[in-house]
Design a protein around this nucleic acid. Structure first.
Lengths: 341, 341
DNA sequence: ATGAAAGCGCTAACAT
DNA sequence: ATGTTAGCGCTTTCAT
């Protein structure tokens, strides 16, 4: 990119009348103490006047630190991830790191390749936001000592730091809200039970129902094939066709909740009059829907920021034991929930 | 990141009984022809068996090519950008490049810093998706020979390749649709007229109105302060309060159109019965709104992909004259438009 | 406090 | 077709 040959450390050193090593020490905040204060000042001034910019590639080669970390996400186009990535970047950048994003499309092969590619790009660590439950590749990387942190999923077995929303409490918030409105038979359209998130939320749902003494009917919990609107619609139809009896549903995420909207139009019943619906995530624009969707808000950007902090810690101190963080959730009550009729 | 010391080219060369230079030539597709086919095969096999992965940092240092490009966007959290970034990455990755994203938050200072930071990270080029019209910094970079391409805005004056949606045709699509429904007095809630996009669409609107012989009333075009729902609502209120007479509005973007929804609720008139509204961009979930928003769909991912291709071209052949591309748009007719009542 | 020297891993003239 | 040599720009022993 440098069109006018950019000055090198040598140039600075020569112009300042010192050895490149001295210039390096002067310019580097960490080693500046080793050099005479006056010399340091002079070198710095010369560097500025020359418009010197250290070449991070050369530094990386020497120090074996790339200053980059890999961000492994399923699909940036999924509205869940942009705020997470933004939160990550906001922490990485002031720390002098940058993030390399790869999209896996939830394809295990692609994921393997992408992670391979990140490794060969010498990333110093990984933030992994893909949600599959079983993950030999990550376990192996972890064994090999690659610093990493998991986002949105608790690692099973492996001792890897993770940032997750406090799903259980989120589900409780939803159930409490519905119970307070007077609902007793509440269904759960869970996300795929092969994902850690889907499983955690489904289990939390059962516990919440039991703990509150509501009607605990296993037939009211059904897993969706994917986290999509279609899958949500399909699951609700299945429940309805089985003649299941319920007045509210807690959806595994917002998209699944939207599927409920579709079915309500399709089958001619009203939300929230005939069926209350609660989502999960608080995606953008949910407040614009008719009815506006009541949902559990997840602080995605904060999750990203925390993840980045944890990763930087792990890079700086690889020995430190894995610390995991659960972030509190809040319920956003909008128009899709009401007392049962 | 390498926990078990990763093998270097030297290791491969030794194991294969050749000189590192030969190994390099054998491993590099471009120079493989220079080496005996058998030797090449042997080297490659040894490299594989050792799990050799070339160190791109070392290569970059030597070749003075970082293999990275900078992606300058206002805010990844704005739903416009994820698909663009995705399109970019999808093209960059197979080409062996990766993108470094920076968010400027539309703050000129931050933008300057971020671009500085990208430069010092030795990016080989820039994809710029920020929309301010006047931009001395970019002009300067361009003069300095930094390969770059502009996304979503036509550069004024400077000879930089750009990828833009065909805004004018998009506006025409919207106006044609409304005219066909029978509307003759159509308002335009333009985006900020200080942005190239806002200006282009506003101009296209006036022409479209005139060309079709509709009521060409300058009072029906009003610029919003920003591309937001609030600004859209404010602009519509202003128009209404002035007693302007119109039956449909073409909004500068979807958010502005959403502002019209708010005002319709607030003032108790119905969309589309009393006012038809057309958006621009086709953000996610517009089909879930009540009424579902009729809008001009922009192929964001394609725009990103094209931008990346143009940038790779510009990097490969800096001399090539700036080629600009306008991508065709389509109208998505949903429920927010109807014949005037 | 500073200089000398070496080398990170790779590629590209230039020999042979 | 392969080896030799040098060097990208920086940091880091090791001397002095």
């Amino acid at each position: 990119m440098p069109p006018v040959q950019t000055p090198t450390l040598r140039d600075v050193a020569e112009a300042a009348g010192v050895h490149p090593a001295t210039a390096s020490r002067a310019l580097n905040p960490g080693t500046r103490g080793l050099v005479n204060a006056d010399t340091a000042r002079r070198v710095i001034k010369v560097a500025e006047s020359l418009g010197y910019r250290p070449n991070p590639i050369a530094r990386s080669l020497k120090t074996a630190k790339s200053g980059t970390v890999g961000l492994v996400i399923p699909d940036l186009t999924n509205p869940l991830f942009p705020p997470i990535v933004r939160g990550i970047e906001d922490v990485l950048e002031p720390a002098g790191y940058s993030g390399l994003i790869v999209n896996t499309d939830n394809d295990p092969n692609r994921e393997r390749q992408q992670i391979e590619s990140l490794r060969s790009r010498q990333v110093e660590g990984l933030i992994v936001a893909t949600a599959r439950l079983d993950h030999p590749l990550l376990a192996q990387l972890h064994r090999e000592g690659v610093p990493m942190v998991m986002v949105n999923r608790r690692p099973d077995g492996v001792d890897v730091p993770s940032i997750t929303p406090d799903d259980a409490t989120g589900i409780e918030l939803a159930v409490d809200h519905l119970a307070a409105l007077g609902h007793r038979r509440i269904a759960h359209l869970a996300g795929p039970l092969s994902t850690s998130t889907g499983l955690v939320r489904a289990r939390a749902f059962r516990s919440a129902i039991r703990d509150r003494g509501l009607d605990d009917d296993p037939a009211l919990v059904i897993g969706c094939d994917s986290w999509t609107e279609d899958a949500g619609a399909g699951a609700l139809r299945t429940l309805l066709d089985r003649g299941a009896d319920f007045t509210a549903v807690v959806a595994g995420n917002d998209l699944i909740a939207l599927g409920c909207y579709d079915v309500s139009t399709e089958r001619g019943f009203d939300c929230p009059t005939d069926l209350s619906v609660v989502g999960f995530n608080d995606m953008p624009f949910l407040d614009k829907l008719r009815p506006p969707l009541t949902t559990v808000a997840v602080p995605h950007q904060l999750i990203g920021a925390e993840a980045a902090r944890l990763l930087l810690d792990a890079i700086a101190e690889p020995a430190r034991p894995a610390r995991s963080v659960q972030l509190p959730l809040t319920l956003v009550v909008r128009g899709s929930t009401a007392a049962p009729s």
